[in-house]
Simulated scan of single mutants.
Amino acid sequence: MKPLMKKLVLTMAAVSLLILGGCSSNDQKNDKKGSDSETKKEEVKLIKNDRYVEPLNPSEQQIKAFNSLSAAVEKNPDHAISEEEAKQVAVNFVYDFFTLANKKSRSDIGGLQYLPSDSIREYIEFAEAYYYGNYPTIVNEYGKDALPQVSAVKVESSEEAQFVYNDTTCDGFTFKVSVSYAKTDLKESALKKEMRIKVMKIMDYDFNRSYDYTKRNLVFEGEMKSVYRVLAVE
């Protein structure tokens, strides 16, 4: 089993058990929507880049996070080792994977664009079995408004590291991250709020949403490029 899968099995199993543990008191209100009396904010526009695929149905916070990633890419045209780019990949992965509120079903897995292409199929299987497996239970018991939505991601510390992936030594970083969520009927203690994310620099294909990544022996097309990918979540 690949390192990513070994780490995520434990991570998502723990989150799965916690989420099914119960809901909070009724006086805890959903703060995802502002009051009608609030002044309408200017829409934040998403800025694309040529290395990482943009998220689907992103929240305003997620758009800002992706824009920070695009800014890091723009500042690194030569694909040099970049702690800032690696950090923003970790942050965007957390937003996209741990947010269920903008997903359509348990099979609508977020964060796949930040994983090594040859690990995505196994990752989907584990995600559906554990963390994303809670999707229908939450919707049926508490309603869609109770689905977790990441509201903030803070990188507490970073450390340079080297990792071995597919028998190749890769440069990268380990980030300690804290996560905040919008309030819902799920207890805050039921959600994973601290984690360590290992991000490595490899040559990989662009993520393509037209592919069926659940197929075995999928043939990837296009040119490989130097990008950061999530190796493990602890």
Rank of each mutant, 00 (worst) to 15 (best):
A13H: 07
K45Q: 15
K183C: 04
R196E: 13
V233G: 03
G110I: 00
V44L: 08
R51M: 07
G222R: 08
P77I: 04
P136K: 12
N30S: 13
F163V: 03
E221M: 11
V219P: 04
E122I: 05
A129W: 02
N30I: 04
S70N: 11
G21K: 06
A65S: 13
K144N: 11
V199Y: 01
L112Q: 12
Y123T: 03
S59T: 14
V179R: 07
V199C: 06
K32P: 00
L147R: 01
L17A: 14
N67T: 08
Q62M: 15
R51P: 00
D31C: 11
D118I: 03
K40V: 08
G22P: 07
M1R: 12
K64V: 09
A14W: 08
N102S: 15
A182R: 05
K104E: 15
V91D: 01
M195N: 04
L115S: 05
L191F: 12
Q149C: 14
G110A: 10
A129N: 11
Q62D: 04
V15Q: 09
K41L: 05
K187Y: 09
S210E: 15
V219R: 10
E223M: 08
P3I: 04
V15A: 14
A146I: 01
A86Y: 00
V9L: 14
F173L: 01
S151C: 07
E84I: 02
A14Y: 10
A152Y: 05
A152K: 13
R196Y: 12
M224A: 04
Y211S: 08
E42L: 13
L147A: 04
S105N: 14
L10E: 14
T137D: 02
F175P: 00
E128I: 11
C23F: 09
C23I: 04
A232T: 10
E122G: 15
D108I: 06
A182Q: 06
D206R: 10
T137L: 10
G143M: 04
N102I: 03
E128S: 13
I109T: 01
M224K: 15
L4H: 06
I202W: 01
Q61C: 07
Y52L: 02
E194S: 15
P116T: 02
K40A: 06
I109S: 01
M1E: 11
L231K: 05
N208P: 10
R51A: 02
K64T: 09
K75N: 10
S105K: 13
R229Y: 05
F98P: 03
S189F: 09
Y211T: 07
I63S: 06
E38K: 13
L218Q: 08
P55V: 06
T99A: 12
G110L: 03
K40S: 08
N67Y: 04
L191P: 02
E54D: 15
A182M: 09
K215A: 14
K41C: 05
P3D: 08
L231A: 13
V9W: 05
S210T: 15
E188V: 14
L100K: 02
E160W: 02
H79R: 08
C170W: 02
A86K: 01
M1L: 14
G143F: 06
A129L: 09
T168K: 13
A71F: 05
K144V: 10
K48D: 13
K45R: 15
Q28S: 09
D145T: 07
G111M: 07
S157F: 09
N140L: 13
V9K: 11
A14T: 14
C23Q: 05
